[in-house]
């Protein structure tokens, strides 16, 4: 599935990820943790060709994807929900969703958009509202729905619950869990380590652009000091 080997990437001459290697398991929910600035977003952006890559390889189903242009990555069955500006704020919910199914026939598109509304029923009432005027949680739902409408087998989500009230965050994770049950592989970057460890069975931890830990979430349940070791006190205090 997704395999990253000795990836070196950054922005222009600035190198952020240093020979980072990580494998993502099919049908798992994997969380990527790490302090602010450790390179989590840069890793996801690199998969979509949005950074300067100077070394290593990224393969998806044994196919090298470095060099494939951003607009063609989604055709491989990978969807990406960025951390910021992950919706078209000047457009309505329906227009946003329609853009994600632009290749489908009119009837098929309508059907799939309806199913996206089933995924997040709250959005049904807001269908014709501009997303830029909606709450953070609703916007996040639109962004996730767009990603899901791309029909992905792998979904990359960058902090999908950042800034959301705990109850809304829980709802988002429940939806993501359901998607995972339907066979979509999920990679979720999270700020809130405890929430992420509850939902995601695989854990990767980044520090300063390198992978410092990869394992199962049960290791953390057994040994709380692991969190201290890898994430420091700050993240522990946050619930």
């Amino acid at each position: 599935m997704l395999s990253i080997r000795e990836l070196t990437a950054g922005y222009g001459k600035l190198e952020i990820l240093h020979q980072l290697s990580v494998d993502i398991q099919v049908n798992h929910m994997t969380t990527i943790l790490g302090a602010n600035g450790s390179g989590k977003s840069t890793l996801l952006k690199s998969i979509f060709g949005l950074t300067t890559i100077t070394g290593g390889s990224i393969t998806y189903n044994d196919r090298e994807i470095i060099g494939i242009s951003t607009e063609n990555i989604s055709k491989l069955g990978i969807a990406y929900v960025p951390q910021r500006e992950n919706i078209f704020a000047s457009m309505t919910v329906r227009e946003n969703l329609a853009l994600a199914v632009r290749k489908a026939s009119r009837a098929e598109a309508a059907l799939r958009i309806d199913r996206a509304f089933d995924l997040f029923p709250i959005l049904t009432k807001r269908a014709n509202q501009r997303t830029g005027l909606m709450s953070g949680g609703e916007r996040q739902m639109v962004a996730i729905a767009m990603g899901w409408l791309m029909n992905p087998s792998l979904m990359l989500l960058d902090e999908p619950t950042a800034g959301l009230a705990p109850l809304v965050a829980k709802e988002v994770f429940e939806t993501l869990y359901n998607l995972s049950q339907k066979g979509i592989t999920l990679v979720i970057v999270e700020q809130n380590a405890r929430t992420a460890l509850r939902w995601c069975e695989d854990v990767c931890i980044l520090r300063e652009g390198t992978l410092v830990y990869q394992g199962r979430n049960d290791a953390f349940a057994e040994d709380d000091s692991l969190l201290h070791t890898y994430l420091g006190l700050l993240s522990i205090g946050k619930q």
């Binding site: 951003t70 607009e71 989604s74 960025p82 078209f88 457009m91 853009l99 791309m150």
Partner: peptide, 15 residues
Amino acid sequence: RALADNFDLARVIGI
């Protein structure tokens, strides 16, 4: 309008 609004996202969703 998608390009005008958010060019990178337009690329990410395959436009």
